[in-house]
Computed example of a mutant assay.
Amino acid sequence: MADYSTRRTMMVDTQVRPSDVTKFPIIDAMLSVPRELYVPADKREAAYVGENLSLGGNRVVLEPRTFAKMLDALDIQPDEVVLDLGCGLGYSTAVLARIAEFVVAVEEDETRADEAQTALSENGVDNAAVTTGPLTEGAAKSGPYDVIIVEGAVEHLPPALLDQLQDGGRICVPFAEGALGTVRVGYKIDGRVNWRYSFNAGAPVLPGFEKHSAFTL
């Protein structure tokens, strides 16, 4: 039997804290959420390694460092509602749910969405809901959101997603630029989103967020 709680502590001590992520709610959430329960069963042994974990079809669970730094940059408050785009099997949602008031997660693949909802329910996460639909469309009917986080890289960000951000809200997105990839945080002020560089990290481009998708009908 693998000692996952030791691995979880190791993950935080060797991947998260050294990346200058020190906010207590983030550290506490990442120490508390059993990451191994939100990855494919055959990948549990690799749940705590410091790299993106493949879910298949260009989808990943973001590596702990990247995800923690995104949370750090967003500075989510306990009274905020978060849109988690591309929640996979629910790990990001479970962590966000410990920090925010409520999380609306979107997953394109129906089976994966069901698995995520089951895992969240079984682990007592009652302030999150998983919806099924195209990631590019978000979940407008539950918005607008204080925070939007995108669990994968984009080349083109659909304007419809920015419309779901509350004025004064933040969105964190890994952009597929160059070899490294660039994570930026957008701040919505008076209806416009102003982007700021946060850090470098790579991830596969999410299906539907490729450049040419802007021109398809």
Rank of each mutant, 00 (worst) to 15 (best):
E108Q: 14
A41Y: 14
V185E: 08
Y38T: 01
R17I: 14
I26E: 04
P40F: 00
I76C: 05
K69M: 13
D163E: 14
D146L: 00
N52G: 09
R196Q: 11
G143A: 08
V193T: 11
R98Q: 12
A47V: 12
E108H: 13
E110C: 07
V33Y: 06
G178P: 07
A160K: 12
L135H: 05
F24S: 15
Q77F: 08
R98A: 07
Y38D: 02
A47Q: 08
R44T: 08
R44Q: 13
E36L: 07
A139P: 07
G138S: 04
L162R: 13
G57T: 09
G181M: 04
L85S: 07
R8A: 13
D114H: 11
Q15T: 10
D3W: 14
E45T: 09
D84S: 06
V16W: 02
N194Q: 14
V49L: 13
E107F: 04
A73G: 04
G133E: 01
L74G: 02
F67R: 01
V104T: 12
M30V: 10
P78S: 07
P40Q: 00
G86S: 04
G124L: 04
V147T: 12
I189R: 13
A113E: 08
A46F: 15
E137W: 01
V205N: 01
G124V: 06
V185D: 08
L31E: 15
K141E: 14
V154A: 14
D79E: 13
S92K: 01
L85D: 10
M30L: 11
T66E: 07
P34K: 03
D167C: 08
P40K: 03
L89E: 00
Y91L: 00
L83D: 09
D72F: 02
V193E: 05
V82N: 02
V39C: 03
R112V: 06
T216I: 12
V33P: 05
L37T: 08
D167E: 10
L96G: 05
I148A: 07
A160T: 14
E51M: 11
N194G: 11
A179R: 12
K23V: 12
A160R: 12
G86I: 01
F175N: 03
P174F: 05
W195S: 04
V49K: 12
D3Q: 13
G56M: 05
T9K: 09
V103C: 07
I26D: 01
L85Y: 09
G138M: 05
I26K: 00
M1Y: 14
D190P: 10
K211H: 14
M70N: 03
A116C: 05
S121C: 06
S32V: 14
N123P: 05
L31K: 10
L71M: 11
L180R: 13
Y4R: 09
T14E: 15
E210A: 11
L55C: 02
T118A: 12
Q166N: 11
I148K: 03
P207S: 05
L161E: 07
E137C: 11
K23E: 15
Y38N: 03
P34D: 09
G133M: 06
S5R: 15
L62E: 03
S19N: 14
C172N: 08
S198T: 10
G88H: 02
V81N: 10
F67G: 02
K211L: 15
D72A: 06
G178F: 01
V95I: 05
L120M: 00
D126S: 13
